[in-house]
């Protein structure tokens, strides 16, 4: 028990003291996962919206595939990203393996289906009558679509937070394609694995605390969005 208390105390000292090794890792984590989610939004929101509103043969399969994205195993994504980016792989010429670019790519592959799946659900939860009504009142196609997305915006924000929470806490993909190189591709999760193996529990715990705070912040955000949702929607559905 003493070892845990000591490690916790030391962890807080490291965090408050602004240990450069620690903060460099935290900043790199935020950069990589933030960029991956941002790119995930650019692809995931249009894809999810389209799947939510369009009707075409094979749509059921496409929806099932996107929903599988919610449970995509990071190590498998990491494996594919590794094989594609390695020197013998089709994208080997990019020279991205073991760089932050590779980590962003892998996490993007995880985040995009995640965002698409949540967007899909969000778009479908908005009553279809809304768009028809808007069209009837003279709104153009795109205006009606924007209105539709506006209605789903709270769920969309939750999608961002959930996607971010999912990628920043994964270790399998970033370890494989990033390689955990100190000062370059070492992020919170890979550093926790290494520091625990080295027996540096205080450093590992300091990073663990930060990861918990980030996860908590993301979830608090989701909860707030979900609580705010019904209240704001009322005037438009009545």
């Amino acid at each position: 028990m003493q070892i845990i208390i000591d490690a916790m105390g030391e962890a807080f000292r490291l965090l408050v003291g602004g240990d450069p090794y620690l903060w460099r890792i935290i900043v790199r984590s935020l950069q990589v996962s933030g960029l991956a989610v941002l790119l995930g939004l650019v692809v995931g929101i249009p894809l999810g919206t389209w799947l939510g509103l369009a009707r075409f043969p094979g749509r059921g399969l496409a929806v099932a595939l996107v929903n599988t994205g919610l449970a995509l195993p990071p190590v498998v994504v990491g494996l594919f990203a590794y094989v594609f980016l390695s020197r013998q792989g089709p994208l080997g010429a990019l020279g991205w393996l073991y760089t932050p670019n590779a980590m962003v790519s892998a996490q993007f592959l995880l985040a995009a289906p995640y965002v698409a799946a949540i967007t899909l659900a969000a778009v479908q939860s908005v009553p279809a009558g809304l768009r028809l009504q808007a069209r009837a009142l003279g709104a153009g196609r795109w205006r009606a679509l924007l209105l539709h997305l506006r209605e789903a915006r709270l769920s969309l924000m939750a999608a961002v937070a959930a996607g971010f929470g999912a990628v920043i806490s994964e270790v399998g993909a970033v370890m494989m394609v990033g390689g955990n190189v100190a000062g370059e591709t070492r992020v919170i999760t890979t550093a926790i694995v290494l520091e625990t193996r080295r027996g540096r529990f205080a450093t590992a715990m300091a990073l663990g605390i930060i990861l918990l705070i980030i996860a908590f912040a993301a979830n608090a955000f989701i909860t707030r969005m979900q609580q705010a949702g019904p209240r704001r929607r009322r005037p438009l559905t009545s």
């Binding site: 390695s86 020197r87 073991y98 390689g179 955990n180 100190a182 070492r186 550093a191 290494l194």
Partner: peptide, 18 residues
């Protein structure tokens, strides 16, 4: 000088790639 923080097999693969 890169510090990989990984096992021998992973480091050899990395050295080969780089």
């Amino acid at each position: 000088y890169l510090e990989a923080g990984q096992g021998m097999g992973a480091v050899l693969m990395m050295a080969s790639e780089k």
